[in-house]
Amino acid sequence: MLNLQSNGATIIRGNLYDRQCNTPECVDKAKFLLGLSQGLSYLTPAGAVAGAGQIAYNLTTAIINNGGEATAIAVIQGIKGLPENIMAGLMSDDPRVRGETLVTALTIPVVAAAVGRKVGVTVLENIGTGPAAGSRTAQRGGVPVGDGAKGSGATGGTPVVLDLFGGRTSQIPGAINVDIVAEQGVRASATQLPFGPATADRIIASNPYLPGGSGIMDWLPDEANSLKSGGTLTINATQLNKFGQLPSADVLDSLGLKVVQPPGPLLPEFQGNIFRYTDGGQIPSNKVLSTVLQKTGN
Rank of each mutant, 00 (worst) to 15 (best):
F243C: 05
G244Q: 10
Q245E: 13
Q245G: 05
Q245P: 00
Q245S: 13
L246D: 06
L246P: 07
L246Y: 04
L246M: 06
P247N: 10
S248T: 13
V251Y: 12
L252G: 03
L252H: 11
D253T: 15
S254T: 13
L257W: 12
L257N: 12
L257P: 07
K258D: 15
V260F: 08
Q261I: 12
Q261D: 14
P262Q: 11
P263Q: 09
P265E: 12
P265C: 02
P265Y: 11
P265G: 07
L266A: 11
L266N: 03
L267R: 09
L267W: 02
P268T: 03
E269W: 05
F270D: 04
Q271V: 12
Q271C: 05
Q271R: 09
G272M: 01
N273Y: 12
I274A: 13
I274Q: 06
F275Q: 00
Y277A: 04
Y277L: 07
Y277N: 13
T278F: 14
D279S: 06
D279V: 01
D279H: 02
G281A: 12
Q282W: 09
Q282Y: 12
I283R: 05
I283V: 14
P284W: 01
S285T: 14
N286D: 15
N286W: 11
K287Q: 15
V288W: 07
V288A: 06
V288K: 00
L289I: 09
L289R: 12
S290W: 01
T291N: 03
V292Y: 08
L293W: 03
L293K: 00
L293D: 04
T296Q: 03
